[in-house]
Design a protein around this nucleic acid. Structure first.
Length: 572
RNA sequence: GGGCCUGUAGCUCAAUGGUCAGAGCAGGGCGCUCAUAACGCCUUGGUUGGGGGUUCGAGUCCCUCCGGGCCUACCA
């Protein structure tokens, strides 16, 4: 039994996430966590909402709410949706928690003690009417290059030229449209990543088994141009973690907060503490996951994230950890994902294009989405969601292959033997062959799952389901029943045990259906199979079961067409 | 502009430089009747984006061209 710490990139607070966000971090992380728990390992699976930053303040203002209230409400909304998707977090925390305040200030204090913080005076655009400094992309104006009148201060979307806000002609606030702007001087703290570059590079170089997507992004940032740059870790905002050195004030930084990307990954640690606090456990309970000197030496730490998050998890957060000089646990493996696209384009919140998590659950059970998303996870490149593909995959894999298998064996048994595991008969060559085939495929499945090969795991699991149908077809208990009822009883008993075995193996992908299968089989036995023949005797003769309703109703062409129309959004 | 990823069957994807490039779906045929008209077996289908090169051997390595995507540090 090993100890596994698993974190999913924390979703931003300002709205409900779409299926692309889900498949890029939370869902595969949940798959891995459920699998490891199923195999008997000790797992700590952490996620949270990422609540700070300019967009949160603006979204709250738009909703007409104080930002604290807005964030608290949105956290509950996201937590509820996560529960309904079966995301099995040990704790779903908040980056605005007091735990994160304390830890973030602690890390900043340590970094300063060790000389890794510099104070920098810089000039930024201030909007007098908005009463706030504006990040570059919140300044709009006319592009000096192409004349596009909605160019942003960081880049012109029309001609893709990179800009400085002062380049813009007729600059205005993207928030209010106000042109009452001025350049002001402000002081910020920078994390001296440049000075930590060699240590970080050596650490990255030691990770030879990481996905290319992960290491290539890290190396690009380490080596491109002048190499890794220092990063500002404070902002002139109201909502956030006040800048302090540990629990002491930071002279000259009054009224400023830490940058959201500084405190967000620290929330992984803080959320673990929030969880143990909630359970009434002492500090040692979370520290044994995070402090190498307090019991975390045997922890394997895996992070899941979309590719946009990679620089922060390979560079900034490790710089924080390493720079602290304290024995905090560093990540062992980063599993990163490409993007899911929607029907030939991007998911778009503003255009209402694509399916968002709440909408997904309003039309179909979570397992349908979990299965499709995981079996099509964007591992080697971006992958595309189309309704046609979704309908075909779900109908074939879940309804025809798995659901129908459960249906045919339970209904046959009910009609010939009643809803009880039948007695009699013994294995022959066909059964031995099935057990051998199962052993081979389950071994392969475990190998793919151990290595987080999500799509290959799904394909292997499906192949395991198919073995059940192949067996039934060749064993043909409906025929043997006529001449040798004892043999038919043995075949059916094996088939019913396959249902339980499939529930256990499938639970990481489709936990709700797995629960349904176990409930129908009248068992709470979730033991991961070791010896397959033994595992197929979990339900003994005489054990009562119930015949479940249709587990996966098929998606009709009408539904598919209606949903395609409903979620296509407004094309610009 | 720079960098990274990617292009394989109608579709979605596999293939440590090494048999005849494989699966699933879709298409075609046969079988079965327990089952959600479901299942099983067989089968059609590829100049691996184009061109050049290295090698005994290239989907894989190199060059080049074409197409798609992402990132480029003050959004997160």
């Amino acid at each position: 039994m090993a100890r596994h710490l698993i974190t999913s990139a924390i979703p931003y607070i300002n709205g409900i996430k779409h299926l692309g966000n889900l498949v890029g971090s939370q869902l595969p992380a949940d798959l891995f966590a459920r699998y490891l728990r199923g195999r008997g390992h000790e797992v700590m699976f952490i996620c949270a909402t990422d609540e700070h930053g300019t967009p949160a303040e603006l979204a709250a203002a738009k909703a007409g709410q104080p930002v604290e209230v807005f964030c608290a409400e949105m956290h509950e909304v996201q937590a509820e949706i996560a529960r309904n998707f079966g995301l099995s977090f040990d704790h779903f925390g908040r980056s605005s928690s007091q735990r994160n305040h304390g830890l973030t200030q602690h890390f900043a204090g340590k970094l300063d003690e060790n000389g890794w913080i510099s104070e920098v005076e810089e000039k930024q655009v201030y909007s007098i009417d908005d009463g706030r400094f504006l990040p570059d992309r919140y300044i709009e104006g006319t592009c000096p290059n192409c004349g596009y009148d909605k160019a942003r201060g960081d880049q012109c979307e029309n001609c893709t030229k990179q800009l400085d806000p002062t380049d813009l002609i007729d600059p205005r606030s993207a928030i209010s449209g106000s042109t009452n702007l001025e350049v002001r001087t402000t002081k910020h703290l920078y994390l001296r990543q440049r000075a930590l570059k060699d240590q970080i590079a050596a650490w990255i170089d030691s990770k030879t088994d990481w996905p290319i997507l992960t290491t290539s992004i890290a190396r690009k940032w380490l080596n491109d141009g002048d190499g890794l740059q220092d990063r500002g870790i404070t902002r002139d905002l109201h909502w956030g973690i006040p800048v302090k050195k540990g629990d002491q004030p930071w002279p000259g930084m009054e009224g400023k907060v830490f940058y959201v990307w500084f405190d967000a990954p620290i929330e992984y640690i803080a959320a673990t503490a929030e969880g143990t606090d909630r359970r009434g456990e002492p500090d040692s309970a979370w520290r044994r996951w995070w402090r190498l000197d307090e019991g975390a030496g045997d922890v394997t730490y895996t992070q899941f994230m979309g590719k946009d998050n990679v620089p922060f998890h390979t560079l900034s957060f490790p710089a924080t950890i390493i720079g602290s000089g304290e024995p905090w646990k560093l990540v062992d493996y980063i599993k990163s994902f490409n993007y899911l696209t929607y029907d030939g384009g991007q998911f778009s919140t503003s255009q209402g294009r694509g399916v968002f998590m709440d909408q997904a659950l309003s039309i179909l059970p979570a397992d349908y989405w979990r299965w499709w998303l995981l079996s099509h996870a964007p591992e080697s490149g971006d992958s595309e969601f189309t309704w046609d593909n979704f309908q075909q995959s779900v109908n074939k894999d879940l309804a025809d292959v798995l659901g129908n298998f459960v249906s045919r064996i339970t209904k046959f048994c009910r009609s010939k033997f009643g809803e009880v595991v039948p007695e009699g008969g013994s294995y022959g060559p066909e059964e031995e062959a099935l057990i051998a085939a199962l052993a081979t495929r389950i071994h392969a499945y475990e190998g793919f799952m151990d290595h987080m090969e999500v799509r290959k795991s799904a394909a292997e699991l499906r192949a395991i389901w198919v073995l059940g149908n192949e067996y039934l077809q060749s064993a043909a208990p409906w025929s043997t029943y006529k001449t040798d009822p004892e043999k038919a009883a043995m075949q059916v008993r094996l088939g019913l045990n396959l249902i339980r075995l499939y529930a256990v193996l499938s639970a990481p992908f489709i936990p709700f259906a797995a629960d349904q299968m176990l409930a129908a089989m009248g068992t709470g036995n979730r033991d991961w199979p070791g010896d397959i023949a033994t595992a197929l005797q979990a339900l003994p003769a005489g054990h009562a079961f119930t015949t479940p309703d249709v587990m996966f109703a098929k998606i009709s062409d009408e539904q598919r067409d209606e949903w395609q129309e409903r979620f296509k959004g407004i094309r610009s």
